[in-house]
């Protein structure tokens, strides 16, 4: 076969593959915009799920993901600091680094029923805290990995300069390394937040859902994603429209956070 022809065929096929990938993205986005446009109105933001609104579940989702961030980020970041600043290539650090990497890809439903086992069964029922813990567990390995790689980009000379000035190791990390890696770390946290705010599976059997407005994390807790799941499968036009409204809002939010990290912070290219 003519090698130039073969070359053309392969180039065309790859270009078509790329076009196909982009058209799936467009198809999903267009669907969401049209369905979202027809089903989003002010009513949704001012009433709760019980009255066919989404106010309580949107706020609930933010609170769950927000508290999970408050718990997961410090733990993940401190662990990442240990890996990069103290352990480095020690055996313990390598084991933690590798297992944390594996945990990052663990099925989220498994995390959900693990938390069911330790936070729902002993406390006698679904509760918001269990949902928070499940999301935090999902978040920790992500934060560990970004912290680890962002700190590795900080030049060794900065640390040495700090130590030469008489700073203690903790001061070097706290005042020099972390502030040098600040932008990368913030980006990592935002992406981890975007990742967990769209999670459904770990919430199904932990915080479950609630039709009413609630601030009490010790009861079943309202969640946007779990609501979308139930609403979509309910055979009624009203609830399916509500599910589309929720999906459009969720996607907009997640993509917005992703784009922010890309354009505002412009992370430096890793080599």
């Amino acid at each position: 076969m003519n090698r130039l022809l073969l070359n053309k065929i392969v180039i065309t096929l790859s270009t078509l593959a790329a076009l196909m990938g982009i058209s799936f993205l467009l198809w999903i986005l267009v669907t969401l915009s049209i369905r979202g446009y027809h089903s989003i109105d002010w009513h949704i933001f001012t009433t709760d799920l019980v009255n066919n609104g989404l106010r309580n579940v949107i706020i609930g989702q933010f609170i769950l993901a927000g508290i999970a961030t408050v718990i997961g980020v410090p733990v993940g970041m401190m662990a990442g600091i240990y890996l990069r600043e103290y352990g480095i290539n020690s055996k313990f650090a390598m084991i933690v680094r590798n297992l944390s990497d594996v945990m990052m890809s663990a099925p989220s439903i498994v995390i959900g029923i693990f938390v069911y086992g330790i936070f729902v069964v002993p406390f006698g029922g679904f509760n918001g805290w269990a949902g928070v813990i499940a999301l935090a567990i999902l978040m920790i390995p992500i934060v560990v990995s970004t912290t680890d790689s962002m700190l590795s980009l900080v030049p060794q000379e900065l640390r040495e300069a700090g130590i030469a000035l008489g700073a203690s190791k903790a001061q070097v990390i706290y005042k020099i390394v972390l502030s040098a890696a600040k932008i990368g770390l913030i980006t990592g946290v935002l992406l981890a937040f975007a990742r967990v705010i769209g999670e459904t599976a770990p919430l199904l059997f932990t915080s479950a859902n609630n039709n009413f407005f609630s601030f009490g994390l010790s009861n079943q807790y309202p969640s946007l994603t779990v609501s979308i799941y139930h609403l979509a499968l309910f055979p009624s036009q009203t609830s399916q429209n509500l599910a589309w409204a929720g999906s459009a809002i969720l996607t907009l939010l997640v993509l917005f956070i992703n784009l922010i990290t890309r354009f505002i912070f412009k992370p430096r290219k890793q080599k």
Partner: peptide, 27 residues
């Protein structure tokens, strides 16, 4: 503060391992 900081970060690293083992044990 130096020792506290190191201890805290060491504990966090252990916590990651603990969660993984806890998942297996609880399941």
């Amino acid at each position: 503060f130096n020792r506290f900081f190191r201890g805290l970060s060491h504990t966090s690293a252990w916590l990651v391992l603990t969660i993984l083992f806890a998942i297996i044990i609880v399941l």
